[in-house]
Design a protein around this nucleic acid. Structure first.
Lengths: 205, 205
DNA sequence: AGTTATTCTTGACGGCGCGTCGATTTCTGT
DNA sequence: ACAGAAATCGACGCGCCGTCAAGAATAACT
């Protein structure tokens, strides 16, 4: 069919396989939202993505791998968003930076709730996912730690050092957004507010 | 055999089934520690508990149910320990109460790390476990909220109310003990210290 | 003790989802 | 048009699950 081969900006249309791979990821995201990870089956995935069960393994080694790719894609969006935080600007108020960080995190959760939730749930059990999630968390923690140090928290590795405190607060945010997303309450904006408040108290030397 | 039937304090020795049930739970706890939940199989469980696969289902409906029973037993130990916290005593300093709460929680994690870890991991995915864990968390949150109110946090359901703040901090502690247990570092006592510090900052009006 | 009722154990069965593989079809460049 | 690569298919065997009817062990009763 399609002999026209419309000339989009990009030369060389994506190969058939690229399309299919994306269809699989899309199906995965939809099914994560509708039935949840456990109930997803390679069969249902391929049914929705077009094709048969066996074909799946041309693209991914495992169901977990496919979801891991989805997680990767999503957390990298967060990563990009946080990169543009002007952490080291001179006049930046630490608390405001954290608030901005929270707001941008909230945005990703709002956009990709099911994927983020699944990541939180599966990170402990599924290595492929746990790895990507850990990397993402580390990145956030590092950024937050820099801010915390700016705010005056001790730059030590002791139990009252910026690193230790930040690690816990980041984890808190993770859990908070997760819970709010799962139960559809309270609204994410309230979670952001509560987190912001707690950070504020912890940064105030 | 054994016609002697030693007279223990308790009349009427436990029925054979009770013994077996306990053997299953014991096997479950050991295997949680050694191979982890996913790798536990009803077969391996019964092999260690004595008996054959089919017999398992006389005691539990499912592998998840067995582990849920184990979780139940463990969190109820925590519950008992926290009940004796003199929350409403007149001269009690709120921060000290929280610190004591943290110390007792730490003790349970130290004693039953594998079970607590498994509970955290499985609560989101396995309803039978999620229910018990949620109940336990609610109990802790309620206690902590009472303390937070004593410390002066607003008794409202707004995003800066004691309930909202406490919910997040409790979750933080959960995640912190989990991580420290899993990675065997930092020592639980340090986690307790860091948590205590954060609570302190949040309770200082 | 002997008989009955209950508790407990067993092994076999069918089902589901997984991951592999070789055979086959569809694409792509030349 | 043709060769090689990319993509698809369907069948196979595996492991673990939960059910079940039949049988053995145990407790209760007289």
């Amino acid at each position: 069919m399609g002999e026209a081969e419309v000339d989009t900006g990009r030369r060389r249309g994506r190969s058939k396989g690229d399309l299919r791979e994306e269809a699989i990821l899309a199906a995965a995201e939809r099914q994560l939202a509708s039935v949840g990870y456990e109930s997803i089956t390679v069969a249902t995935l391929m049914e929705e993505a077009g094709g048969t069960r066996g074909g799946f393994y041309f693209y991914f080694r495992t169901k977990a791998d496919a979801v891991a790719a989805l997680v990767e894609r999503t957390v990298s969006a967060l990563h990009v968003s946080l990169e543009s935080l002007s952490v080291d600007q001179p006049g930046a108020e630490p608390v405001d930076l954290i608030r901005e960080l929270l707001v941008r995190t909230q945005a990703i959760w709002a956009e990709h709730g099911p994927v983020m939730s699944a990541a939180v749930e599966l990170a402990p059990t599924v290595p492929a996912i746990g790895d990507r999630w850990a990397a993402a968390r580390d990145a956030v923690t590092q950024t937050a730690t820099r801010i915390a140090i700016q705010a005056g928290l001790p730059d030590s590795s002791a139990s009252d050092g910026a690193a230790a405190v930040t690690a816990l607060l980041v984890r808190m945010g993770e859990g908070a957004f997760y819970e709010a997303t799962k139960r559809a309450a309270p609204p994410l904006s309230e979670v952001t507010a509560t987190c912001g408040l707690i950070w504020q108290r912890c940064l105030g030397a």
